[in-house]
Design a protein around this nucleic acid. Sequence first.
DNA 1: TCAAAAGTGTTGATATTACACCCATGG
DNA 2: CCATGGGTGTAATATCAACACTTTTGA
Lengths: 237, 237
Amino acid sequence: MERQPFASAANVSERLAQPPALAISTVIFALRPSAASGRPTLWLPLVRRIREPFRGMWALPGGPLTQADSLLDAAARNLRDTTGLAPSYLEQLYAFGGLHRSPSQRVVSIVYWAMVQPTEAEMAQESENVKWFRADGLETLAFDHNHIVDYALWRLRNKMAYGSIAYHLLGEKFTLAQVREVYEAVLDRTVDPANFRRQLKQTPHIEATEEYLQGGKHRPPRLYRYTGTMAEDSPVP
Amino acid sequence: MERQPFASAANVSERLAQPPALAISTVIFALRPSAASGRPTLWLPLVRRIREPFRGMWALPGGPLTQADSLLDAAARNLRDTTGLAPSYLEQLYAFGGLHRSPSQRVVSIVYWAMVQPTEAEMAQESENVKWFRADGLETLAFDHNHIVDYALWRLRNKMAYGSIAYHLLGEKFTLAQVREVYEAVLDRTVDPANFRRQLKQTPHIEATEEYLQGGKHRPPRLYRYTGTMAEDSPVP
DNA sequence: TCAAAAGTGTTGATATTACACCCATGG
DNA sequence: CCATGGGTGTAATATCAACACTTTTGA
């Protein structure tokens, strides 16, 4: 906040010079079928940089923080402007403020992470400068963005373990097997279907509908609905 | 990060005007004996504002982000300059960027939270403008600082439940009962000594020393040492 | 009627809880 | 020798993981 009665207030203000730039970026996760196996895997959209530094390289969607928007609003706007996506989940990830993140000027990036539903993700326009990539095994990105994505993945896996995150990657109605597939895709290990189902069913905010998913090859599974909210786990304004 | 190839890049740059100010603040926790019961309770140091806005009110220690410091460094400097404290734990809490946090200008605060050991906390100079307060039942603070403290407390309790946080509030050597007291103070409930001790002992990074705490009224308890690091639970640079 | 996923039941292992009990020390 | 907190043992309970088994559908 504004300056405080420091012992060394003088020193501090000397160093002020011009303040660091403030930017908002977003790591956007969505489920897409793997090209090889067809099973759902984690993808994220990146944008190609059209100017220096790192011109031509892929980077997280982002832009400067605008005066009129709160941080969350700025992230949401960012997401919409870049990819046309409306997130089902959007939360602050971390503020990155290392001295040499950008070669030109000092930039502090407040990074959000988002999850979008598969239907949304399909509609998202790709273009010359906006493309989806698999979250694992990314090429080298601009700035410290590989590092940021790694951290986002770590948080995602963490929050998945005990938290109601997975649902935000699915549509409004889903089968319990689909939830399990999300877990398996993100945590990258198989999960016992029987036990997983039991755990889910004694979890709050999971409501059984009277509908069944038709069109499969086998017995039609029941559809469920998530009744929780976005801010379930992080009581931040 | 720098501007991206938006559909609406033009709109965005129009809104740029002057960028929001960037500040660093810190919520500093330490254990101090309660005035009433003598049992350890959570305290934090606040500084009195000597200028508008909120002149005369108490606020979190903080200041502008200086060009030469990373976010973590800035928080550490902040802490040292304000209270003379060296933290045993320092981690990013959250970035607060609501539009009306400060009545004058738009301020984005990146808030860190710290824990200092009791010996440190005792030495900390109090003064007319720096004073320790009990973390519960704080009076109304400047800006949105009550809200920030509440969030820090929530995170602290959360992380305490499964994480190696409590040790950072204690000195280098401590008894298991002291750790339990920290849990009881922070979580505000009693904990079974026998079970708690067992849980701790099968936790990593807790090492028994050959020393015993002398001078108590009863059987001298064994002293333990924490061998973990600060960044144990949050893999952030 | 067969293959395969949906969904249920059962069992042994492991973790958690409550609480009885012994140990060591200062007074 | 006794009051008190340090420290250990143990039985009841809840939770978890593995896997056999039944159900329901499309082909």
